[in-house]
Amino acid sequence: MAVMGVLATVTVCASLLGVLLQPFQVRSVRVLEGYWDRWYLTARLAGVLAQLQRRRWQALRRRVEQVARDDTALRLQADARRRLALRPSVEALLPTALGNALRAGELSAGERYGLTTLTSWPRIYPQVSGYLAQALRSTRDALDTAVNLCWSFLALTLTAAVALYDEMSTWWLCGAGLVLAWVAYKGAVTVAQSYSALMHVVYDLHRFDLAAALRHRLPDDREEELELFARISDLVAGRGRLDVRYHHGGADCRPCRDEAGS
């Protein structure tokens, strides 16, 4: 019973610490993503871990490219292909699995259509339909919760190590805290992969809503689409030309139709 009480106390304290971390949510996620270049020692560690990530990426690539000779090899090849799809390109890899899971969406969701994801995301998000917006919010909340729990368990592990350093019989609590932190981190990675997938869906379904909301004429083919979204990316990044022609009416302008019907 005493052990269960200790575990319950640790879990409750971890949850409370997660709530206290909420104002620092963006920073706590970015640290676990692997943005460590601000300080010399962490930058060196980031370089070592990024190299490890590149080796894993290359191993997966070799598995995908080799000839599969039996069912087992085919399954391994399919798994490697799936895992590669959840990562960014080798030159954009970050030191951590969480960072790579999120970067896969940040660098490819809009780029498939000529949009720069990082600059266009705040503008396309308001165009998202109700069910998809709810899925995005739910997934992001789950990601933040998992990250907060990871930090909470790490903090409790450090506290336990300091408080119980002379009581060897209780060292297992430190090990349990590390295991729980690892489980929370793995959960954050899984949720981040789902969030990146939803980012791709947003651009699949709502990229033309973004163009219409910005008062651009919708394209007629793939070539015009790439040209339009490249121009929009330049505009939102502050690199656009001043000779832009806007479209304020017509059948292909959803905001105009909404205003006419209101």
Rank of each mutant, 00 (worst) to 15 (best):
Y131N: 12
D71C: 03
A109K: 01
D221N: 06
F229Y: 10
L41M: 06
A197L: 09
A212V: 04
G238P: 11
F229V: 05
L115Y: 03
A230F: 03
C253I: 11
R44W: 15
R63T: 11
R254L: 07
A68S: 13
A230G: 09
L102R: 14
W36K: 04
L143G: 02
A14W: 01
A68N: 09
Y125H: 14
V10D: 01
Y185P: 01
R112E: 11
G187E: 03
A212W: 00
S169M: 11
Y131V: 08
L136N: 06
A101I: 03
R217M: 02
T11D: 12
C256V: 05
W182G: 03
S108P: 01
M199N: 04
V19T: 13
V162H: 15
M199F: 05
Q51S: 13
F24I: 14
L242H: 08
D79A: 05
W182A: 03
R137M: 08
G240H: 05
T9L: 10
Y165P: 00
L226G: 02
H200P: 02
V201P: 00
R140E: 13
A73E: 09
L20F: 13
L149F: 12
L156I: 07
F24M: 09
G261M: 11
Q22L: 13
L74A: 14
L45T: 06
W121H: 12
T72K: 15
T96G: 06
A133P: 00
V128I: 15
L17P: 04
E224V: 01
T119S: 06
L198N: 15
L149C: 05
Y165V: 07
L158N: 10
W39Y: 11
A97D: 12
G34E: 03
P126V: 14
L180H: 05
F153I: 02
L156N: 04
S262L: 15
R123C: 06
R56D: 14
K186Q: 09
L52R: 15
L205K: 09
S233F: 02
A14P: 05
L149E: 04
L60E: 12
Q53G: 04
E111A: 10
D70V: 14
R207N: 08
A43P: 00
T190M: 09
A135M: 11
R215H: 03
T145W: 12
T96V: 03
E167A: 05
L218H: 12
D141Y: 04
L41T: 11
Q134R: 15
D204H: 15
C174M: 07
R257V: 08
L218F: 13
L235M: 09
L198M: 04
G105Q: 04
L156G: 01
R30A: 12
A59Y: 10
L156A: 09
R245Y: 06
V29W: 00
L17A: 12
A46G: 13
A192C: 11
A213Y: 04
I124S: 00
W171Q: 15
Y35T: 08
S194A: 12
D70F: 14
V201K: 06
P126L: 09
G187N: 08
H247P: 00
H200F: 08
F153R: 07
V244N: 04
A59H: 05
R27W: 13
